[in-house]
Design a binder for these strands. Sequence first.
DNA 1: CTTAAAAATTTTATGCTTGAAATATATTCG
DNA 2: CGAATATATTTCAAGCATAAAATTTTTAAG
Lengths: 166, 166
Amino acid sequence: MSDNSALLADASNTVALDAAASKARLRLWLKLLKATKHVEAELRENLRTGFDTTLPRFDVMAALYRIEPGLKMSELSSVLRVSNGNVTGIVDRLVDDGILVRIPVDNDRRATTVRLTQAGREQFEAMAASHEGWIDSLLDGIDVSEVQHLSDQLECIARKSTKGED
Amino acid sequence: MSDNSALLADASNTVALDAAASKARLRLWLKLLKATKHVEAELRENLRTGFDTTLPRFDVMAALYRIEPGLKMSELSSVLRVSNGNVTGIVDRLVDDGILVRIPVDNDRRATTVRLTQAGREQFEAMAASHEGWIDSLLDGIDVSEVQHLSDQLECIARKSTKGED
DNA sequence: CTTAAAAATTTTATGCTTGAAATATATTCG
DNA sequence: CGAATATATTTCAAGCATAAAATTTTTAAG
């Protein structure tokens, strides 16, 4: 969702000195949100019409493409930063579609490793190529020479959540 | 046959630069996404623990707080950029909770206006005050003097989606 | 006036997402 | 060993989100 402009109305009178900075950050957040939602919506639409799939499925496949031997369910949910139960559902459907396989883990019957099938790897490669192109054109309003700087600023925002393993 | 290697070299150099720019944009997108998801997750958590509510509900209330006489359902879904059916469900629950009222529209029995109740306005004001503080602290890694510049860059990304009414 | 087309909203089917509870297996320690 | 605790995953209930179909009402055209 976007357009939280009402938030900028001065509904409370609690702020004094840092009011301007605070409002500026709020406006920045709203723009950040708007830009992200816009790109996300385009990606969803492109994945849907071009590959009959979804962003969550793409994200799972992307994570598993990087780690060829696969990941345990808990590792997957940790990498994607979503709940365990969420991953279970998405993986279930990808397994049904022959894109993923579940492999028992030796010496631990609680755990399962999830891995892309060959078909899954091939499908992902096709999607990833398109995906890069979509991003490239969606972000082409951004000067490449600015990218590093912008990147650093965003790093500051995300920093508190992780130790930045990318 | 003439020697076109200079042209080929030039061409491949251009391709290489484009490829590098493309990868840089992709990395930027991943950071943008990460930063946004992080802030969103914090907001959700704060709304949940502090006010027992959700971000979608907050977004609906914010939109309606801004337009005091209320909005029609279709206007609301358009402002929030979500589907009609989505808004129906969220509004249903907010009405049940006494935060919103549905008001018939004169001369058009298809449409409904949705408006915050007084209780709704008061609840929103309390939440909005906290919200600004949360954003302020979440974004405090960003130098205020950089905010305008960063903002402009983000504007470029979102530009294609709207005519920038925000 | 009557029928066709358009508009506003809701419903439906499906999938994503979460937090919490449940299940099953492993590990630790007295 | 055996009980408590920890870990890995799934299940569950509720809500969010979409696209497509259905419903109701309005508007337009003949």
